[in-house]
Design a protein around this nucleic acid. Structure first.
Lengths: 207, 207
DNA sequence: GTCTATACTACGATAGAC
DNA sequence: GTCTATCGTAGTATAGAC
């Protein structure tokens, strides 16, 4: 029952936020009484933190197969680092586009705006796994950048893919569509690859 | 009093979201009784929509001086269009960085995730004013792109600056700082300009 | 046009039965 | 380990006083 409550809570908290959902609704959806939450998690806040832990470990599980294939950045040529960055951004974009990840990403985006204790959990246990290798690769691809500039560049590159969630409503309106078709996904991947390659190529090797 | 209620509500709804703030708290902060909200706006929902209208018109006011200086995109050379895009992105980024705009941007970001009627108002009355000229400029700078590809590219370019809000907590953590110093702002502007120029230069004119 | 009174509903937490 | 019952608090909405 404990696990079932967390599963439901991921969806509810993710989609609607902490304040918008009641413990009674979660408990009912899980087929249990509200006081089960008090028993297992000590209260609403405790359940919320359990959701953060769940999301962080899910993130790791989902991204692990991809991250395991990345070679050590110090052994990469700038061109290889660029290729891996393109790949990582596309994997990240795919996560942003997948409907199953909606609850996760909304949870995380909400926490970015008003970080609670839950954000620390997500950041340290989940997010670091993708952001840190990515920054190392950017540094290799653009060795002329300072450490700080490389970090900012990495954030901006990832920001493009993040917008697939954070700007979703505007994107759909501007593209005059209501759903993400496979054709659109292809176009998105193409544009992202073009942008990422342009950003990561060193000035002296641009064609 | 009506205006005062809206001003307070912009801050409260922006920072904490619809469900997290109560009408009593807003009314008290405005130095009024809760029922004034019922009277003026018909209820909490009505006040929320009034906030959306307020934000949309504030956006237009804030961006109008900049937007008025943009020449008609059809009279621009690709290089001029690129320059204007850089400028627009930096203005947009400045808005994202300015603390005063925190409540606005959080309101909008939250609406992107779970659009309500308020989003329609913001989109049509506020957002279109900046996004549409920007897309036109991108089309001029990259004439080889299809209409759809240009729109996506414009969104991704703006997504980088959007991340200054949506990824704020992660950014600060990665840069190991807690505040946006003037030096950091300068570095951000520099990186954004570099990225935008790289994305918008046509393949045949890259140095 | 604005505020006070009050009614009604729902929340989270807790204690105690099973 | 799970549920029922209940408490105190806080939310919106309404009616009516000023």
């Amino acid at each position: 029952m404990k696990d079932r409550l967390v599963e439901i809570a991921v969806q509810e908290f993710g989609r609607h936020g902490f304040d918008a959902v009641g413990t009674r609704a979660i408990a009912e959806a899980a087929g249990s009484a509200m006081s089960a939450i008090t028993y297992h998690f000590g209260g609403k806040q405790g359940l919320y933190l359990a959701v953060a832990e769940h999301i962080a470990s899910s993130m790791r599980d989902k991204l692990h197969p991809t991250l395991a294939t990345i070679p050590d950045p110090v052994n990469c040529s700038p061109r290889e680092a660029e290729d891996w960055c393109v790949h990582l951004v596309q994997v990240f974009a795919a996560v942003m586009l997948r409907p199953e990840s909606e609850a996760w990403s909304l949870f995380i985006v909400r926490e970015q705006q008003q970080p609670t204790d839950a954000f620390k959990i997500i950041l340290e246990k989940g997010m670091a796994a993708i952001v840190e290798p990515f920054m190392a690769l950017v540094s290799v691809a653009r060795p002329e950048l300072s450490e700080e500039a490389a970090r900012l560049t990495a954030l901006f590159v990832l920001g493009q893919a993040l917008m697939l969630r954070t700007g979703r409503a505007t994107m759909l309106h501007i593209l005059q569509t209501t759903e993400i078709t496979p054709r659109l996904v292809e176009l998105i991947e193409l544009r992202l690859e073009d942008n990422v390659r342009r950003i990561l190529q060193r000035p002296d090797v641009q064609p």
